[in-house]
Nucleic acid binder design. Structure first.
Lengths: 109, 109
DNA sequence: TGAACATATGAACAACTGTTCAAATGATAT
DNA sequence: ATATCATTTGAACAGTTGTTCATATGTTCA
């Protein structure tokens, strides 16, 4: 760290969001950073699904799916409605789709 | 997993990307899921920077930054050029900005 | 009320990740 | 050559994360 960057750094610091927001951004993307959760979000792309259907689709425990849905829900990425015994989850936000779509583009071009 | 979803699942399975792609998507977002890396990418938003300037900006070890730059580089999110002793990093892709921008929107509205 | 179904929850364990530290590489100038 | 600066690298350690298992909650129907 020998040569001088003071002017550059001062300029950049002004354009940077707060540490808190940057932390929140990281936390948000962390949630997209898991294959199971990505699969769940993709499954809900078109329409809502109940927990046991998602579990069957992914070939995973209903408990595992439920844990992940909780994570997704607490980040406001999915929402749910109850109908009798069954609880249906759906995407709560168009951003979910556009974030995934951007990632998809980065990979496939 | 008692009630029947076979028709639903068959339909959804056709619209799902391959497991490999879904895995890659998760891996990509995993890289965005860390505050240090988010900060680095934000720092490079406008212009290239050398490693020690980034370290000074974030108040972190140059070694820690270097490790993270390696991660970012291997995912083709940043690229570098050498000029004498110094190595300058820059964003390698417009997707970086749009992915972050989408996350930002999700948080701030 | 009791049985069956759908989902949620908590604790525990293995696997993964980010930082640190010490040492190595690469480039420049004297 | 050697000293110095900029960066990279590898091993190690602490902290975090995802799944499993067992159990609890909530709903419906007989």
């Amino acid at each position: 760290m020998a040569h001088d960057h003071s002017t550059l750094l001062e300029h950049i610091r002004q354009d940077m969001p707060t540490d808190e927001l940057l932390q929140d951004l990281g936390d948000l993307f962390k949630i997209f950073g898991d294959t199971t959760r990505i699969k769940i979000m993709y499954a809900l792309y078109e329409d809502e699904m109940c927990v046991c259907a998602i579990a069957e689709l992914l070939g995973m425990t209903q408990s595992a799916i439920s844990h992940q849905l909780k994570t997704l829900k607490s980040a406001n990425l999915v929402a749910s409605r109850r109908s009798g015994k069954t609880i249906y989850y759906h995407l709560s936000d168009e951003h979910v789709k556009s974030i995934i779509a951007q990632g998809y583009e980065h990979l496939t071009e």
